[in-house]
Simulated scan of single mutants.
Amino acid sequence: MDSGPERHEAFLKLFTASDAALRAYVRVLVPTRDDAAEIMQEISLVLWRKFDEYQGHEDFRRWAFGVARFQVLAWRRDKARDRLVLSESAVESIAQQMTEDAAQLELQRSALETCIGKLQEEQRSLLRAAYAPGVKLDWLSKETGKTVQSLYKNLQRIRARLLDCVRRNAGAGDLR
């Protein structure tokens, strides 16, 4: 492994590419966002400290999930008296399933980005507006001059088109 700036840059590229999936993984395994944030800090430190052990030919995300699983289990041991903590077997089961699903989820995320890019600009704008934080369709209706029912139908058609596109591009026939 490189030393100095090259090593740091390589780690940051791999870590930032996996950060969202890793956070989602941890969040499923612990009861609160604060717990997940605390554990993520530890995970990032452990990943950096153990980065020399990472074999470049293996999947970084899978390796990071393994480290995360152990950090969650360590956190769980520390919080063992708390009623809100999952059992070790539940954590192991969820962690295993999340690891298996991670590659498919990333493929689906990537396909969704591609499919959104294929939409007409007007459709993309409607999606951005409708799913912006705090936006309500009645407000959007007034802003666009379209009825709420018309917006619902347009969004429904766009979502159906995106779902079909993602299924075709990600081989995700089991999406609901």
Rank of each mutant, 00 (worst) to 15 (best):
K136L: 05
A95F: 00
E42W: 03
C115H: 09
Y152A: 00
Q96R: 01
S3L: 09
F51Q: 06
E113P: 02
S125L: 09
G171K: 05
G66S: 02
A103T: 13
L86H: 13
R23G: 07
L47S: 07
D19A: 12
S3E: 14
P5E: 07
G145V: 02
L127E: 05
D101F: 00
N154W: 00
K79Y: 11
R61D: 01
Q71M: 08
V91T: 10
L12C: 07
D78M: 14
G66H: 02
S18C: 15
K146C: 05
I158S: 06
D82T: 13
R77D: 11
G173I: 06
A102D: 10
A64N: 13
A132K: 11
D101S: 00
A21M: 06
S44W: 04
K153R: 14
T99K: 01
E9F: 15
E6V: 12
R76C: 14
D164H: 14
D35C: 07
V135D: 02
L162N: 03
D82L: 06
N169S: 14
G173P: 01
R61E: 10
R83M: 12
P5M: 10
P133K: 10
L84R: 09
K153S: 04
R27Q: 12
A37C: 08
L105I: 07
A95H: 00
V72P: 12
S44P: 09
P133F: 02
D59Q: 08
L127S: 10
K79E: 14
A64S: 14
L155I: 00
L163N: 09
S44D: 06
H57N: 15
F15E: 06
A68M: 04
S18A: 15
E6R: 14
Q149F: 00
Y152F: 00
Q71F: 01
S141I: 00
Q104N: 13
R167K: 15
D164P: 08
D101M: 00
A17Y: 01
L14F: 03
L47P: 04
E53C: 03
A36N: 13
A102M: 05
